[in-house]
Amino acid sequence: MDFRKRLAALLLALASTGAGAQPLDSAQKLPMGWYVTESAPKRYEAGVDTADTCEGTRSAYLRSLSPDENGYGTFMQAFGAQDFRGKRLRFSASLRIKDVEGWAGLWMRVEGPDPKQPLAFDNMQSRALVGTAGCKRYEVVLDVPKEATTIMAGLIMSGTGRAWLDGVRFDVVDASVPVTDLLASRPVVAANGPAGLEDGPASGSKNDTLPLGRVGDVWFNQGRIAADKPYTRNKDGVWVSILGEEVYEHGIAVTGTLGQRALDLKLRAGGRYTRIEGTWGKETVDIQMSPEKLSMRWGKLTRELARDSSAQVNGTCNRYQRTEGARVVDQLDVCGAALGTRPPSAQLVMSFLANGFSPTLPTRGLAAPQPPVRSREALDTERTANGPQ
């Protein structure tokens, strides 16, 4: 296949020998097919390094040129999806990082007819690399739908620091390899109780019940925000609640009315922090989220939570919590598209506000169901285990 030939040439360029060569600082010396994109000009650069590689004799690096932590850069490639439609694709590479203030990781994005609505995406932000770390192999795995047109993949770094990539591989894998898709659909719990069979999706979208992201118990997608008082998106782009309140998007600005309070907020993402700031009602809002912590302030109400990287939580989620001793006193999971470098503005803003600014105790699930009791012997299990009473 043409793509496999191009890919083989590209990987050969990245892995080819360069005896005695010094690190190169020019993006023009990058392996064929790779290039740099960034949130602002001249913030990042990429080059080829022959020292301290993880695999092979050459690695590519991405480094920040500015001390400004508000930004991100990617070392990436883009190629047609035709050879992978209907398949599961794994992009893997060896990474190492140094002094990363922000986060770094692999990323892959599958696009369809509308580039503004990716079909699949993962940037490792839920398992981000921070600080300084040695060589280790990482991967992202996505399903490529039949309507896919383009696949993009590479190394992303937010904030400052330096990251190296080598040993790049693209493999078609079977269903035994789980996807890491931040946009993958998940089971949905109705926000307003059971619905009748005649009830159709409010937004008219066939994907109305497939979540793209979640903050706490509030999930969202392109047409619905499933809070206590759900919002749906009209054809004109206006978000309308079941109470008739309206919310508008103007680029990064989100305005309108939420919970009978005037809303005037801005969302900035892609740097070290995802930040929401402005006013809600008469009080000031300031929400800052990074891979290490989450801070939420509204007037005098404050939530300060630290990332629990050891938590047993869905691989597309970051768990933030506050503890007192061994007791968890506040907890919030942020999942899926809410962790992206370009999260949907209105959905993310309203999902955070719907969770509130007071501590929320972890959800306590019901006890695991047990097999039905079928005989008196089953009822006597404890007695027989402990001997005659």
Score class of each variant (00 low, 15 high):
1 M>R: 11
4 R>I: 12
6 R>S: 06
7 L>C: 08
8 A>C: 10
9 A>E: 14
12 L>D: 15
12 L>H: 11
13 A>F: 10
17 T>S: 15
19 A>W: 04
22 Q>V: 13
28 Q>A: 13
28 Q>I: 12
35 Y>N: 03
37 T>A: 13
44 Y>T: 00
44 Y>M: 00
56 G>Y: 15
58 R>I: 01
75 F>K: 03
77 Q>G: 08
79 F>K: 10
79 F>N: 12
88 R>F: 02
90 R>D: 11
93 A>K: 01
98 K>E: 09
102 G>N: 01
106 L>K: 15
106 L>A: 05
111 E>S: 13
112 G>W: 04
113 P>A: 12
113 P>D: 09
119 L>W: 12
125 Q>H: 10
132 T>V: 05
135 C>R: 11
137 R>H: 10
139 E>T: 15
142 L>W: 12
142 L>C: 12
144 V>N: 09
145 P>I: 10
145 P>H: 05
150 T>H: 03
158 S>G: 07
160 T>H: 03
161 G>M: 02
164 W>I: 10
166 D>V: 09
167 G>M: 02
167 G>T: 01
170 F>K: 06
176 S>D: 12
177 V>F: 08
178 P>Y: 03
179 V>G: 14
184 A>Q: 02
192 N>S: 08
193 G>N: 14
194 P>F: 05
195 A>W: 03
197 L>W: 13
199 D>I: 15
203 S>E: 09
205 S>H: 03
206 K>S: 11
208 D>K: 10
212 L>A: 09
215 V>T: 10
224 R>C: 14
231 Y>C: 03
237 G>F: 06
242 I>M: 14
244 G>W: 13
253 A>T: 00
254 V>D: 00
258 L>M: 06
266 K>F: 02
268 R>M: 10
269 A>T: 07
279 T>K: 04
283 E>I: 08
283 E>Y: 10
287 I>C: 10
288 Q>D: 06
295 S>I: 15
296 M>C: 12
297 R>Q: 09
299 G>N: 02
303 R>P: 09
306 A>R: 15
313 V>G: 05
315 G>P: 11
316 T>N: 11
321 Q>L: 12
321 Q>N: 05
327 R>P: 01
329 V>S: 00
335 C>W: 09
338 A>P: 06
341 T>G: 04
343 P>V: 15
350 M>V: 15
356 G>A: 05
356 G>C: 02
366 L>R: 15
375 S>W: 09
376 R>M: 11
